[in-house]
Amino acid sequence: MIDTLIHILLLLIMPPLLLGVINRVKAVFAGRCGPPLLQPYFELWRLLRKGSVFSSSTSWVFRAGPLVSLAATLTAALMIPFGGHGSPISFAGDLLLFAYLFALARFFTTVAALDTGSSFEGMGAAREVTFGCLAEPVLFIVLVALARESGFLSLTGALTYASGGMWPSGAAPLMLMAVALFILFLVENCRIPFDDPTTHLELTMIHEVMVLDHSGPAFGAILYAASLKLFVLGALVLHVALPFGAMQGWLGWISFIASMVLLAILTGVVESVMARLKLLKIPQVLLMALSLAAFALLLTVR
């Protein structure tokens, strides 16, 4: 019961902190002081109190987009374990629901973008679905490999096994899967080198360009959903990359929070030292992630 409460509190409160950490790391690399770590929270608070402007060509679909994608991401967050502690909701087959909830969020985000009738947002939506198509098989290959190794069809079962019992025998496939998932994590969360969350040059963006027309509380919901997605997929990467299995009780929670912050720092470092890829290169990198994941699967099946 306590664990469930902590899980829900963590997923509600912690995500924007990661954005703050990433921004701080990037600022340090650029030789600036950077905004306070809690800046994303302030921004969310500010957006929630603001008024909204709606485009005259939009309909209820535009307003539903951010809400549906936030609800779907929150639901998915209930099914992923956080650091050695099982998730509040877990059943055989939940990994499929987890993946498809993100597809639901993608559907509504892109449809809302097309509702504005702007060609720029159409571009962003087209890119989002294109890269989504290539990213989903990567996730599923990793899930098959984990399910086959662990014998579990639930995220908690499979991921707990990956961060526990699988380490001695399957370090190599786990590392490969971690790399593939990290690429997936960067793509899905629109980080450099795949997309730039800070640029406002519309032609080069994916996620940011889709939400150009949202304002006020709806934009706050988008920002929050994005940080939540970062958090949830980050937890997925960490479970494959780190052996949480040894950590029990409070140690598990503390080590999870610490490694989440470390992941954010790593993301910030990647963003600082890498340039953006050409858009045409992104499918190729995703194919590379696909090959890595397939290779890892091959090593586990063998």
Partner: peptide, 11 residues
Amino acid sequence: GATLVIGAAVT
């Protein structure tokens, strides 16, 4: 991209 996919398949 295509050679990479073929390479993975061949492996």
